[in-house]
Design a protein around this nucleic acid. Structure first.
Lengths: 347, 347
DNA sequence: CTGAAAGCGCTAACAT
DNA sequence: ATGTTAGCGCTTTCAG
């Protein structure tokens, strides 16, 4: 008799040795059965399966990965601005749907746009031997974030492209999205459209502005005359900026906001000033109940479910050995018309 | 010279042995330093730290847990209805904030209210040796969900109390919340208030209804006359039910909805029928932009951040050895007045 | 088709 | 204060 005590086994979790002992086979045979490897006779297989069921045995994924040549842990890390941000949460869900089918579990973490957290969480996940990571980059250079010895660890960037290294990335077409907003408002008749944007150190915000301003320029609007307010990071700062712009001399007849919280601030400002039905508004990124607002809010919608699904697919492909050159996948936006963006300028 | 090849070390990740070799000490000394154990001279400590920094060494948490007596992996599992559901996502974030401080990583998974997924994900997390789990229970009996051999694994239930076993739980005071809605609408003058609720197999929905109906009874309203519509699981079914109720003979003068999606359906029905300012509405659970609706939506707010923080605290306490009897922690709701719930009945 | 022995990276239990 | 040996649960290698 070896160690597995049959009697008092309420405390210790069963191991392969327990199963092997109960089934009357060698431990390697159990391993083969649990991993569905070939080379086990049907009768042995059934004996092992029975014993495993009796003991309620569950393979220890992490212990196995220690010795396994592929070293896979069937685990990936997901680093988001915040797990409670709706856009991020939608990406998270889409990834989970794709990954859980493959038996891959996901570690999630929030970075709050803090570079120190980015580095700390990357290390934390690396220390837990993830097979790969999906990361919303923050630091100005990801080369320092990923340690040298893990350069070959599959990483897919989302929302923003990485700097300082090349890797797969899945991003929204922010510039084209901004341009769509500009063209739509122009088509409705607007010539003086203000831009209210997020922190200028965030790549996506810069892209949205660039696309927006460039498109206006192409349409013949003097880009120097476009009112621009940036570094608006929350509802209140956006509201204040919008009020200021709307109460200035020669105010714009339309607003384009680069992000949800900024859009909310603009909505509040417009309502407060009684301009909801007078000044047009297009927001970047869709949100729940946008159609229940008065007026409904026209938006440039992103597609987080597509981003998440594609990121998961690319990550798994890399983990499974795909070595094609890194590529950036671009997800288009969709203009959704709901009313606020179709208000014509008072002429 | 032992195995660690100094030259070509771009591919293999450094291990303790590499660090030990470089620092010229034994492997156990490295272990002591990395785990901040006492009994290492300051000078040795620094040598080790230097070598570890040079190699960019990172402790392998999972490998260590294999041999460690506590067997802790510094990892916990979180099972939610969906990571993309705002209420769940808020709980997730609060837990993460509490746990990341302690160096604990979290696996998150969505269950979609499917008992099979509950069991599958519990097993997946168990197989990755989590130190504990926070779980929104679904199956009618959690005894079958947690295998016998893991009965001593700390588990904290959230949102709903477990069945078939006793464990810590952190839940909203659903019954009192429902009662608050009833009393508020009664105080405003309503005597005929409809209840629109979620699936009756969900404990929280039943509690909200019970609290609501009982409170009305105590206030002298004939509970038999309360219009009740249940098993509304999405916006559209709720909208249809609300329209039906509102267009019936002798319609209610106020609505109480047990959940966000149902509230949204009610809002749509009221708007569609032009009754937004005529029929009162109180929703259970707060939501973004509720104050920007017309009228603002009065709600019984839950406090997911409190639930998450407390669940994390209880889980860590259990993991660290707390053995007091299991207890259910109840988080109170808050009535937030915004307009829709203060509409008086047309008399 | 099956199993014994070695060892993954680490910590425990003992040396020294 | 430091190092050595064994072994966590598993997979690999290699011998039957």
């Amino acid at each position: 008799m070896s160690k597995p005590s049959v009697g008092g086994g309420a405390k210790t979790r069963p191991t392969m040795r327990h199963v092997a002992a109960l089934a009357g086979v060698g431990i390697k045979t159990v391993s083969r059965v649990m991993n569905e490897e070939p080379g086990v006779s049907e009768s042995t297989r059934e004996k092992v399966l029975l014993a495993s069921k009796q003991l309620n045995y569950e393979l220890d994924v992490t212990a196995g990965s220690l010795r396994r040549s592929s070293r896979r842990t069937q685990t990936v890390g997901l680093l988001l601005p915040s797990v409670s941000n709706p856009f991020s949460a939608e990406i998270h869900r889409a990834m989970e749907d794709a990954l859980s089918l493959k038996g891959v579990a996901v570690f999630a973490a929030s970075l709050d746009d803090e570079p120190e957290r980015e580095e700390a969480m990357v290390r934390a996940f690396l220390g837990r031997r993830v097979d790969g990571m999906v990361l919303t980059p923050i630091a100005s250079n990801q080369a320092h974030v990923i340690p040298e010895h893990s350069r070959d660890l599959p990483v897919v960037f989302i929302d923003r492209e990485p700097a300082g290294l090349t890797a797969d990335a899945v991003v929204t077409d922010n510039a084209v999205g901004g341009a769509k907003a500009a063209r739509h408002l122009f088509d409705v008749g607007h010539r003086k459209i203000a831009y209210l944007g997020d922190r200028t150190d965030i790549q996506t915000a810069r892209e949205r502005r660039r696309g927006f301003i460039d498109a206006l320029g192409e349409l013949g609007v003097s880009t120097a005359s476009v009112p621009v307010r940036e570094n608006l990071h929350d509802v209140e700062s956006a509201r204040l900026a919008a009020v200021e712009i709307l109460t200035s001399d020669d105010p714009p007849t339309a607003l384009f906001s680069s992000q949800n919280l900024v859009t909310f601030g603009c909505m509040r400002a417009l309502r407060e000033l009684g301009l909801s039905h007078t000044v047009a508004l297009v927001g970047f990124d869709d949100f729940t109940l946008s159609d229940m607002m008065d007026p409904g809010v026209t938006v440039i919608a992103q597609h987080p479910e597509k981003i998440g699904a594609l990121a998961a697919e690319r990550l798994m492909a890399r983990i499974e050995g795909d070595i094609q050159p890194p590529k950036t996948y671009i997800i288009e936006t969709t203009l959704i018309i709901r009313g606020s963006g179709e208000i014509r300028p008072a002429s």
